[in-house]
Simulated assay, not measured.
Amino acid sequence: MGKRAAVEFVLRPFEGLPGEPDWVAMREVVPAATGTARTTAEHGARDVVVATVLPMGWPALHRNDGTLMVALQQHAGSGDASRDLAALLLQAMELPAGTPITSAPLPEPGPRLQDVLDLDVAFEVTVHDGFEYWLSPEDEPDQDVRASLDQMNETIVPTRRLTSVDAAYVAQMGDRTYLRWAVTRDEQEFIDALARLHARRESGLGEAGAVGRFLGAFRSCGLLVPVWDLAADVDVEVLEQELGALSGRLEKALAVEAPLDATERRARAGLVSRQLTLR
C-alpha cells in the first residue's frame, strides 16, 4: 500500500476568505456564534452555516432542514484548517438531511475553503447567547443531543462582538472581563506600533488604561490577537469609543517609519515576552 499523501502545513489557513479575523476569533475565543457562507456554483451554490461548535462535538452536520453546518472548534487537524473544513463540508453535502459527521479523519490534499466557497459572499457573524442555533424549527433532538445542548448552555461564557473595529470580542469570564481583538496587520509592524504606544502609556483603553489595561497577545492561525483586561462593569458605548480611539492611535503609529528608540525597544521586548502561540 502506498504512503498516504500528507496535507502541507499552512500557518494562516483562512487568509483570502472574507472576514478572516472573525474566522480566527470564532475558532479560538468565541463560544457560540455562526457565520454566513455559500459554496461556489461549481459546488451547488449551497448556503453554509459556519459555527463555533456543534452538538456532541460533531465536526459537521447536514441538518434536517437541509442546512449545511461545519464547526470551527476542532481538536485535531492536518495542519491546514482550511483543507480540513473544506473536506468536511464536501462530505456533509453528500449526506442525507439529518445526518451528522461524527468524526473527522485527516484528509488528503485537495480543495480548500478558498476553492469551495464563494469569496464574494460576506462572512456575517452572529454571536448567540446559547447553542440553540444547532437546531432547526422542525428538529426534535434525541436525549444525547438535548443533554449536550443543556450542558453547553450551562457553561457558556457571555460574549459580545464590538463594532468599532473588526473582529473584537468582549467576554465575561467569572468576575473578569476581557477584550480580544484578532488583527490582520503584519505582526511585526503591529507590535512595533503597539510598542510605540506602550512606551507612552497609550496602549490601554481610556486615560491611563482606566477602561482597559493591555495584558499581552497570542497568535492563532497566523494572526495576532491582543488582549485587554477591562474595568469592572465597563459601559459598552464607552468601550466602543475608546477602542476606536486606540485603533486611531495604532494607525498613526503604524505610519511612523523611523526606527524604535531605546524606550520603545524596551517596551517591545516586554510585549514580545507576553506572547504565546495557540496554533
Rank of each mutant, 00 (worst) to 15 (best):
R180T: 06
D186V: 00
S203I: 12
S203C: 10
A171E: 13
D175F: 13
A147L: 06
E140F: 04
D175Y: 13
R161H: 14
D192T: 03
F218S: 02
L162P: 04
E202T: 07
E154S: 05
F218G: 03
D192M: 04
I156L: 08
Y169W: 14
T177R: 12
R161K: 15
F190H: 07
A168Y: 15
A217S: 10
R180F: 04
T177H: 13
A195R: 07
W181C: 00
A210V: 13
A182L: 07
T163M: 14
N153F: 04
P141N: 00
Q151L: 06
S148M: 05
L197I: 11
L194Y: 09
L215W: 00
S203P: 07
A182N: 05
E187D: 01
V145T: 08
A208K: 13
V183C: 03
R213P: 00
M173V: 15
H198D: 05
L194A: 09
G209L: 09
Q151H: 03
N153M: 01
N153L: 01
A167W: 15
R160H: 14
D186M: 01
R160A: 13
D139T: 08
V170L: 13
M152G: 03
L162Q: 08
H198W: 06
A182C: 07
R146K: 05
G206D: 07
V170E: 02
E189Q: 01
T184P: 00
R146C: 00
D150N: 09
R185S: 00
Y178N: 02
V165R: 13
D192Q: 05
R200V: 08
P158N: 08
Q151R: 03
Q143M: 06
G206K: 12
R196M: 03
A208D: 12
D175L: 11
V165D: 12
Q188F: 02
S203T: 07
R213T: 10
Q172Y: 06
Q151Y: 10
G216H: 10
R201G: 01
L205G: 07
F190I: 05
R200S: 05
R200Q: 12
A147M: 06
V183N: 00
D142Y: 06
D144N: 03
A199Q: 07
S148R: 07
Y169M: 08
D175C: 04
Q143H: 10
L149M: 09
T184F: 02
L197F: 09
T155K: 08
R185V: 05
L179A: 06
E140M: 06
A171Q: 14
D142K: 05
G209P: 14
